[in-house]
Simulated scan of single mutants.
Amino acid sequence: MTRPAAWRLVLAHARAQGLEIARSPLALVTNTMYPTLAFAFFVLPQRGIVTDPVQSLVATTQLSLFGVLSALVFGYGISAAQDRADPWTTYLRTLPAGAVATTAARFVVGLVAVAASLVPLLLVAALATAAPEAFTAGALAWWRAPAAAAIVLASGLPFLAMAVAIAYTTTPRSALALAQIVTFPLAFVGGLMFPPETFPHWADAVSLATPVRAARDLAVGTLLDAPIPPSSLPVLLGWTAALLALAVWANRRDEGRRFR
């Protein structure tokens, strides 16, 4: 299969998966608005954060990263686990094209959904907090905002690999429970719910070893021109490589069991 044909196949699968998601508008709106609702309920009532440009930027970055984490682990992991029980998806995996096109298409759809979920969050942060003042006053360069956003989106790769591993090693019902068990503890330990500066020494050491904390420190440090722990990039890359290897193993294990 030539490269153009491969891309056409990926886009065809992405279109089909996007249409399937569009048929459930309630689920689409819920997943898209979840980070914004969390911001409205937990951040906006805190005037000390809303009126401080730096704290507003930190809160927005952390909830953006939480949106990426939850959207990929829940959206991809659970839907891919459900697809394994779908006869049509099983049939697609027996075709000569293999599972690469459907997997890549799901990543494209997931990335679009994640990017869409960040738009209302950023609008609320821009209109209801003092975050823009950090840029309009000249304290921070404007390029730091898109750079931090790119880091947040790129940090979704290990979470996507985690979702693949969950999807291909569990049943749909177990995938939902496991996604909850993984997502929320990682968000807390990774410093997305509470400032890492408040962690005791032992908790901070554990937090620094997680991919969520590494992504958080890279994004916040880039946005605010703040010091980034030296371990952040190696930890994120190490987790990405390990989780990608786990995802590949889980996919091959599933194929070996079901399509021999």
Rank of each mutant, 00 (worst) to 15 (best):
L121C: 11
L122A: 15
L122H: 07
L122C: 14
L123D: 12
L123P: 08
L123Q: 12
V124I: 03
L127Q: 14
L127V: 15
A128C: 15
A130N: 07
A130D: 06
A131H: 14
P132T: 12
F135S: 14
A137I: 03
G138H: 09
A139D: 04
L140V: 11
W142A: 12
R144L: 10
R144M: 02
R144G: 12
A145L: 15
A145F: 14
A145E: 03
A148V: 00
A150R: 10
A150D: 04
I151C: 02
I151A: 01
I151H: 03
V152K: 02
L153F: 00
L153D: 12
A154P: 06
P158Q: 06
F159T: 04
L160M: 03
A161Q: 11
M162I: 15
M162R: 07
M162W: 03
A163W: 14
V164P: 11
A165C: 15
I166P: 03
I166F: 04
Y168C: 02
T171W: 01
T171Q: 03
R173K: 07
R173N: 01
S174H: 03
A175Q: 00
A175F: 00
L176D: 02
L176A: 06
L178P: 06
Q180N: 13
Q180P: 00
Q180T: 04
V182I: 11
T183S: 03
F184T: 10
F184Y: 13
P185L: 14
G191S: 08
P195F: 03
P195Q: 15
F199I: 03
F199L: 04
P200V: 09
A203F: 11
D204K: 07
D204Q: 08
D204G: 10
A205D: 06
A205F: 02
L208V: 10
A209H: 00
P211D: 12
P211S: 12
P211R: 11
V212M: 00
R213V: 11
R213Y: 05
R213C: 11
A215V: 01
A215I: 06
G221W: 01
T222C: 09
L223C: 11
L224N: 05
A226T: 08
A226M: 04
P227W: 02
P229V: 08
P229C: 05
P230D: 05
S231F: 10
S232I: 09
V235E: 02
L236N: 07
L237I: 10
T240N: 00
A247E: 15
V248P: 03
W249A: 02
